[in-house]
């Protein structure tokens, strides 16, 4: 690691934390802790964006940092907390697959992602290119979380965490997307969150529960 500047090493550290948090979310059963982990992931993301901005002197990335912090560390966790209080769903929940198996599948995914990112990161010219594999792995892990969870709220958190991974990939591999795109995505996530919040209330009103198994009744019966 001799030729690598300090900030890049710092980013690598943050990337590792991000991946670790992704695994933690995959293993977490309590919904409130899950939200805290999500906020922590957002914090790591915001810090890493700030570091990239400082290290590579990209002033527009500072805006991204502020935006990420405001949205993912403060606003979204606050909305989620509020939702849970309003809906009164502080339960622990079971996944479809038990946690150790999920973790094993997650490890396979990480290996796959690193394998996948290898040729791309060799092409990239940025100092932070090695983090691309991690970014992709955290996208995959969030996707896996969405698949294995049965309740609506963890699925939404998985969806938001997926966006975290994508954002990290964008900053680490290419020094961030254009400002317009970033703003657009931020707005999308916020609006998506609000709409899903409305849906939660609707689903609960219909089925008295947020368990998505009830939605299976909507399928056409077999002849």
């Amino acid at each position: 690691m001799a030729g690598v500047p300090l900030y890049a090493q710092f980013i690598n550290l943050l990337a590792a934390i991000l991946l670790l948090l992704a695994f933690a979310m995959l293993a977490q059963r309590r919904v409130l802790t899950l939200i805290d982990l999500f906020a922590a992931q957002g914090l790591a993301l915001a810090i890493s964006t700030g570091v990239v901005a400082y290290g590579t002197s990209q002033p527009h990335l500072y805006f991204s940092t502020v935006l990420t912090f405001a949205l993912k560390v403060i606003l979204l966790p606050w909305i989620l907390h509020r939702l849970i209080r309003r809906l009164d769903v502080r339960w622990e929940f079971e996944g479809l697959i038990n946690i150790p198996t999920t973790m094993l599948i997650g490890i396979v995914l990480v290996v796959f992602s690193f394998n996948l990112a290898l040729p791309i990161s060799q092409l990239a010219s940025t100092v932070t290119r090695s983090t691309l594999g991690i970014a992709m792995a955290s996208v995959m892990l969030s996707f896996l979380m969405m698949i294995t969870r049965r309740k609506a709220i963890p699925q939404v958190i998985g969806f938001l965490a997926m966006e975290n991974g994508l954002f990290f990939a964008a900053t680490s591999a290419t020094y961030g997307m254009p400002m317009v795109v970033e703003l657009g995505i931020a707005l999308d996530v916020l609006v998506g969150m609000l709409i899903l919040g409305v849906f939660f209330f609707q689903i609960r009103e219909q089925f008295d529960s947020l368990d998505l198994r009830h939605l299976e009744k909507l399928k056409e019966p077999d002849q």
């Binding site: 995959m140 698949i147 294995t148 969870r149 939605l215 299976e216 009744k217």
Partner: peptide, 25 residues
């Protein structure tokens, strides 16, 4: 393939994503 379960549908898109990533790289 229409199972009516969100997780199954998500699995479909997940595997599609994996397959695409695998072939495109």
């Amino acid at each position: 393939i229409q199972q009516g379960r969100i997780s199954v549908y998500l699995t479909y898109s997940f595997f599609t994503l994996l397959a695409l990533l695998f072939f495109v790289r």
